[in-house]
């Protein structure tokens, strides 16, 4: 029973995550782009998405770090981190989609998002080939 409950955690987490993306407006590319458009007609809403998420997660992560899990080491600030994040930012700005909302919208039947996810998958495979990740933690 305990094992079954534990198995449900990722499913429930994914669902809550998806509901949060929908409620917050993250799945609407125009809203994301309006948030990034600080010099135009700026919609600051998405700053509150990040604020709300961190406001809930930070105290729990800190508590868990002390009580349950030894704090995982922070990796180095290096070239691939900076270059990869800049490249991602360009893709994010052009489309209004970051990976979570793109997957959700594609799964929800949006054709444009499906094409985007296909392209994103290609990019990920290229990135992995370029020596990016070892998925250290199963």
């Amino acid at each position: 029973m305990r094992r079954l409950l534990r198995g449900c955690v990722p499913l429930v987490a994914g669902l809550l995550f998806g509901i949060g993306l929908m409620v917050s407006g993250m799945v609407v590319p125009a809203k994301v782009q309006a948030f990034l458009d600080v010099g135009g007609r700026w919609d600051p809403s998405l700053a509150l998405v990040m604020g709300g998420a961190i406001g809930v997660a930070l105290p729990i992560f800190r508590w868990a770090g002390r009580r349950r899990f030894p704090a995982p080491p922070h990796g180095p600030v290096d070239g691939p981190l900076v270059v990869g994040s800049l490249v991602f930012g360009i893709g994010w700005g052009l489309s209004g989609y970051c990976p979570g909302p793109a997957l959700l919208a594609a799964g929800g039947g949006n054709g444009e998002a499906m094409g985007y996810v296909f392209a994103m998958g290609l990019g990920m495979i290229l990135g992995t080939r370029a020596g990016a990740p070892d998925f250290r933690r199963a």
């Binding site: 270059v83 990869g84 994040s85 800049l86 490249v87 991602f88 930012g89 360009i90 893709g91 994010w92 052009l94 489309s95 989609y97 970051c98 990976p99 793109a102 094409g115 985007y116 996810v117 296909f118 392209a119 994103m120 998958g121 290609l122 990019g123 990920m124 495979i125 290229l126 990135g127 992995t128 370029a130 990016a132 990740p133």
Partner: peptide, 10 residues
């Protein structure tokens, strides 16, 4: 944009 997002995040 999709390719850039996938590549950059990896």
């Amino acid at each position: 944009a999709g390719v850039l997002t996938g590549y950059g995040t990896r």
